[in-house]
Write a protein that binds this DNA or RNA. Structure first.
Lengths: 347, 347
DNA sequence: CTGAAAGCGCTTACAG
DNA sequence: CTGAAAGCGCTTACAG
């Protein structure tokens, strides 16, 4: 169906090298010659074959998105992330393949060995990650979404947990809440042990609490509605004076909210709930809609691919990008009860 | 790094053809020769290069998943679907690339012209779909997730809307509800006009209503919480006797529920809400958790890829598969008010 | 500015 | 059972 370069060359009465030069615009070609070639390309419906090009140039222009197959919930914004990554690749003339694989090194080794991809975008990085070692050992160019423990020579983009947590705490402090409880994800699960986001968000919270002089209470909880509800119970039982809860656990947040409401606690009149790094779908599906800092999913996908492509093109590795979440107003946060707001801020 | 076939051949003292025969197990090879070759492959860490293979065999073993970039919400189960598709492809030795593209023909034409993929899995098919025409014209093997209007010679898998709606209605009838209101997605949006799922689900509902002798009330509503809430208002205002609502609109369902609750309507005591083709994340995030028929996302991805691969392998096109949703019990449905349940069923 | 030629890493008739 | 050779569709020094 589609014509080859050879056919175009014959039709235009030139060598295939010259056709290649105009297709890639890689060498000067006489105007008249170029015209003949372009005419032939259009007439014969020439489309450059990526496989031939890949073999000859040793660059496939395909990159892989590697993530854990047992998707512990990429969150509701998973598709948004992935789509944004694919479109960014596409705009640069690349393709994105999906490699949802186990966390161990064997499968990744096998896949990169096939020579299909020029580079890898690695997600859900653990602090010690066998996959990073595979990529290093095989000299596969790669970039990370997230960060491992050892950042030497790593190209990555990640969420700015410090900034996001700071913004979140500030939001609640601004409403007059003097202290707050943080609900985070469970690290009991082996695959979440030392899961970067939880570790970093909690560390940020503790640091900020120390700076602002309140006692940091941190509650771990699984990523389910049920666990969120249990967390609500525990907060009411163990820290009855709580006026604000900061949740970094998208799938527990709805349960936390309904757990409070079921106990007759009014949100936000009695207790404010602020959800951090949550999809808009989740925030708006509950009642009252959650005030939240939305996850910069699409932006991470875009920047992650961009960073990887820059490595592939041999340009200077881009500096690590850290993106904060963006406040999406809802109805689950409000002034601290007791009119403490104004007093607190001027104290 | 990775050895080539030529290097293996030299190390084993054979021709590269023979190496190819053992790698592909495509021709008989003497045991002793095979042993030498296998030893050399292991020693030199041979990994067959997919690009060379693709060029020579004219099969890339890459397939594309094509879906609308303006993702009108593949739903919360989007990642699950996509991951399942990628893993199914992987298990068969294929790779899955993501092509989130506009709905028009130009971009798809350009992409298939690159010769990167052996076939295409097409999603969100419209009743008249320019993309199907592109695939036909370019003789690109393809399979559909969903169905276009004209099914001649089409390989597809889809949700079984008839069976799912029947199950849903039966569930509510079994609880004593004599009639019900259906809330569906908005078809006002141009890109959703004649959107297969809405058309088919509504048709099934009307047919069943006629069979069972109740008046089918159908309400269109946008895919947002807000619209769901408005739908609740409208139901209470226009059809105050309603005891059961059947929602086929994942992102409106939470709003419908909270809209009822806000009006003091108890769910399920006063009104039952049954959500059809919804992700579990959504169903469980609201309070009360929704009784729902879950979307067979992962299964669709698996069967869709399988169907496409069968076409690629030149096997008989598999018969169209239609999958129903599965009932996931929640707390949003219950007996019809007025103790009608038992009476109704024996009447 | 253009072309002849080698080569990217494989597969596959064809011959023996 | 094995090998020599052509070829898949391109790119890229090299020469002129």
């Amino acid at each position: 169906m589609a014509a080859t370069m050879r056919e175009v060359a014959e039709a235009a009465g030139v060598s295939i090298a010259t056709v290649s030069f105009v297709v890639n615009n890689s060498k000067p070609v006489a105007p008249e010659t170029r015209r003949r070639i372009e005419e032939a390309m259009v007439r014969l419906q020439f489309r450059r074959n990526m496989v031939g090009r890949a073999l000859a140039s040793r660059r496939t222009r395909v990159v892989a998105l590697v993530y854990p197959a047992i998707e512990h919930k990429l969150g509701a914004s998973g598709m948004e992330f992935v789509t944004s990554a694919a479109r960014t690749a596409s705009a640069a003339g690349y393709h994105l393949v999906l490699w949802p694989i186990s966390n161990d090194a064997a499968e990744l080794t096998q896949l990169v060995g096939q020579g299909l991809v020029d580079g890898v975008l690695l997600m859900e990085v653990q602090l010690e990650d066998a996959r990073v070692e595979v990529l290093r050992a095989t000299r596969t160019p790669f970039a990370l979404i997230g960060r491992s423990g050892d950042l030497r020579d790593l190209v990555y983009v990640d969420i700015d947990f410090d900034a996001t947590m700071q913004d979140a705490v500030d939001h609640l402090r601004g409403l007059g809440h003097r202290s707050m409880v943080m609900v985070t994800g469970s690290q009991a699960d082996a695959s979440f042990r030392a899961y970067g986001p939880y570790v970093r968000a909690e560390a940020a919270f503790r640091r900020i609490a120390a700076e602002q002089g309140f006692e940091p209470v941190v509650l771990e909880c699984e990523q389910t509605t049920q666990s969120g509800r249990a967390a609500a119970e525990q907060i009411l039982a163990s820290w009855p004076g709580t006026t604000a809860v900061l949740v970094f656990n998208e799938f527990a947040a709805p349960g936390l909210l309904s757990g409070l409401l079921r106990r007759g606690v009014c949100v936000p009149q009695d207790v404010s709930v602020l959800s951090v790094l949550t999809s808009t779908e989740m925030s708006t599906s509950v009642d009252p809609p959650l005030t939240a800092f939305s996850s910069p999913g699409a932006e991470l996908g875009r920047l992650g691919v961009r960073a990887l492509l820059r490595v592939l093109e041999g340009e200077a590795a881009p500096p690590p990008a850290l993106l904060p979440g963006t406040l999406v107003p809802g109805s689950s946060t409000g002034p601290a009860p007791g009119g403490g707001s104004a007093r607190e801020r001027h104290a």
